[in-house]
């Protein structure tokens, strides 16, 4: 049985990653464990959320850590990598957004991109300075600007939420087209999702039910086969998963 650990910044990413894995790996072959880590730096505590049975058929064991905060993802990886490596994990992937409070005042795409490049370089450096007894690959992926840009890019699911949410309506009412425009250039994708929901009298405030609702309606085949080529950050994330699976 091969083992992979994925650290994510919050509940949205955790639910999405769990569903993605269940969709792309044959059900009997994967066993997923989810833990939530919370608390201040010196007092991080992890609590179990989900733990699948491991059977004789299980080929892949994936441990998903919800780090409860964007800045905690790399920090938690650094804290746990030695123990994960010694427990047979062969790769660690971190997933967090670019968007965070410290860039909320930035207004131009150029500023966001410059920030994203600096952040990517910084987090990569942070992982590269870890000293492990038995080093394993560790990768960090930044969803640009938020994981909701991946949901926006998967435009097929909007009519499943409400039949009135057509691409034409989104284009007409909100001025962008999730199918033809690059959703990685949207500065605040979760806000865009909220605006789309509001077109049909609903809203998006990242509560668990809403996330489950969106994630369950995503077309994973489309994500896995098509969008990985047009949404670079998604492609990178799935690419690392494929490196593990293959």
């Amino acid at each position: 049985m091969r083992k992979l650990a994925i650290f994510v910044e919050g509940q949205t990413e955790q639910i999405f990653v769990e569903n993605l894995l269940r969709e792309i790996v044959e059900k009997n072959h994967i066993s997923i464990e989810v833990k939530k880590i919370s608390g201040r730096k010196k007092h991080r505590v992890s609590n179990p959320i989900v733990k699948d049975q491991v059977t004789i058929e299980t080929r892949f064991y994936v441990l998903i850590y919800d780090s409860s905060g964007d800045t905690q993802v790399v920090s938690d990886i650094r804290d746990q990598c030695e123990s994960l490596s010694s427990n047979g994990y062969e790769r660690i992937i971190g997933l967090r957004d670019v968007y965070c409070k410290s860039i909320a005042d930035k207004t131009s795409l150029d500023e966001y991109i410059a920030y994203k490049l600096s952040l990517e370089r910084g987090l990569h450096y942070s992982l590269s300075t870890v000293i492990m007894t038995d080093p394993i690959p560790m990768n960090i992926v930044l969803a640009v600007m938020e994981i909701e840009s991946w949901f926006l890019s998967e435009w097929n699911h909007f009519p499943k939420i409400d039949a009135k949410l057509t691409l034409d309506k989104i284009q007409t009412d909100l001025g962008f087209n999730p199918k033809t425009d690059n959703m990685e250039t949207r500065l605040h994708p979760s806000s865009d999702i909220d605006k789309i929901y509001r077109l049909v009298g609903s809203s998006y405030d990242k509560n668990k039910d809403q996330i489950n609702s969106i994630v369950s309606k995503l077309d994973y085949e489309f994500l896995y086969l098509k969008l990985i080529h047009t949404v670079p950050s998604l492609g990178k994330f799935i690419g690392y998963i494929n490196l593990f699976l293959n």
Partner: peptide, 8 residues
């Protein structure tokens, strides 16, 4: 300033 991006 770059160091702030490492989260270290």
């Amino acid at each position: 300033e770059d160091f702030k991006f490492t989260g270290l």
